[in-house]
Structure formats: C-alpha cells, structure tokens
C-alpha cells in the first residue's frame, strides 16, 4: 500500500479544457513521483495556469482524469484536495487578518485538528521565515513576506502535492534564493510542481522539466538528462515555443 502511494502522487491523463471554441489545454499527461520537483514552463498563455487550476480542483476538465495519490479528484474531491497545497499566481490573502489568524484558518479548512493546530502553525511559520510577523496584518506586509505567507498557506496541512504558480515573481534576489531553498527542502519528501518563467530557477531547483506551448506538452525530460546530453534549456525553450514546426526535431535529438 505504502509502496503504491510513493509511486505516483499526481497522475493526470488526457487532460483537456475548452473555453467555448478555444482549446486552452489539449491532451496533457502528467505524472509525478514523491520526492520529485517538476518545473512547468511555457510562454504566457500556454495553458500552465489552466492546467494547475484543473489539478487543484478549481476548474473542471473538459476531458481526462486526475488522480491525487490514487484518489480521483473528480469523484472524491474532498479527500483529494486535502492532499494538495496550492499557491495561485496572485497569493489568495485576506489583508484584514493577521498572519497567525490566516494560517489558522488555512489549517482549519484543511482539516487540521485543534490538537495539532499550534505545532502545525509554528512549523509552517518556521519554514517560511514568518516567526516575527505572526501578529501583523497581512495587508501591512511587504510583497516578499506576503508571498511567503502564500507558501505557508500551501504547506501548512502537510500535503503530498504542492503546486506553486510563479512563487518567486516580484521578489528580490535574496528572497528568491530563500524560496528556492525552501522548495528544494519541500521537494525532498513531497511532490512539487513549480511554474515559472525563470529558466535558471528550473535548472537549480527541479528534477524534471515539462514545457507547454499552445495547450500542448511539447517537452518532457529530466534535468539530469538535459545536462548529460548537454542541451541548453534556454535554447530548447526558444526553439520549441517560437517556431512550432521544428518542435518534433528537438524532442528527438
């Protein structure tokens, strides 16, 4: 049983999403193991955010299936969602609450029992470096701290899958480094999906990289594999997403 859980935390097959006549996501397959950090790349409008919203149950897919730790997200949304932590592009923060109040709310909504509440809260704050700001209003925090609160909210219930949509946007270089370290730490024991536009970030943090373009998955390889073949991620990205025609060649090379 335990073996089975470790094998795949997220498995999505044939995921499609249409908005009217426009197909935003077409036939995406995604598989993620425990202890793996997946870099999710693609130009703006490629369908990354749509895919992530589907994986977190914010949007129903037009076709396809999603399983979180073997639990079908569409059939048993509550059980599946309890295992996901999600930080959307804009951190979903209540500016009128203090950091502590907000994180407590997040923990309660994710069914953390009252007994564990204190320890879970302290651990999340510790990890995200929020110990000093627990009593401050979220609205009064700087952008970097708000982003950290967003991450703390996503990891507070100890989820198996963490999905982060551009977590380092708008941060200064030091904060970026801190957050990358945090993501690597988290990735050691859970699965992380990280969407970003910063290619060096992917190379330094992720184990595997997938590139989306016009709603399709056009590239899927491990970072180690890329290094072995001495392929530059930036070149791959440019070739795949600028010129659609040559995509087939690169994938095979």
């Amino acid at each position: 049983m335990n073996e089975q859980i470790t094998s795949a935390t997220i498995s999505a097959r044939g995921l499609c999403r249409n908005f009217g006549n426009h197909a935003a996501v077409r036939e995406i397959n995604l598989e993620l193991k425990r202890g793996e950090v997946l870099g999710f790349l693609g130009p703006n409008g490629a369908g990354k955010t749509t895919t992530m919203r589907m994986l977190t149950g914010n949007l129903a897919p037009s076709a396809g299936s999603i399983e979180i730790c073997g639990i079908d997200l569409l059939d048993r949304p509550r059980d599946a969602k309890a295992r996901i932590g999600y930080l959307p592009e804009t951190p979903p923060l209540y500016r009128d609450l203090t950091v502590d109040e907000y994180l407590q709310l997040a923990a309660r909504l994710h069914r953390v029992g009252n007994v564990n509440l204190r320890s879970v809260l302290n651990e999340a704050k510790q990890r995200c470096g929020l110990n000093d700001v627990g009593r401050q209003l979220i609205g009064s925090l700087s952008k970097g701290y708000q982003q950290r609160v967003g991450i703390a909210q996503a990891i507070i219930h100890n989820p198996d899958v963490i999905i982060l949509d551009e977590p380092t946007v708008g941060l200064d270089p030091n904060q970026m480094r801190e957050i990358r370290t945090l993501i690597r730490e988290l990735g050691a024991e859970r699965s992380v999906i990280l969407s970003t536009h910063i290619l060096p970030e992917v190379e330094s943090v992720c184990d595997r990289v997938q590139i989306m373009h016009q709603g399709r998955m056009v590239f899927n390889d491990s970072i180690a594999g890329l290094k072995q073949k001495q392929i530059n991620l930036e070149e791959v990205f440019a070739q795949l997403t600028l010129d659609n025609g040559s995509s087939g060649d690169i994938q095979s090379s």
Binding site: N58, R78, K81, P92, R95
Partner: peptide, 14 residues
C-alpha cells in the same frame, strides 16, 4: 476581486 476565492475552493470543502 481579491483572488481569495481560490483559497476557499482549493480547500477540501464543498
């Protein structure tokens, strides 16, 4: 408007 609806919908509640 504050993008916090995602917070509620992502939580395991109906």
């Amino acid at each position: 408007r504050n993008h916090t609806m995602t917070f509620l919908i992502s939580a395991p509640i109906s």
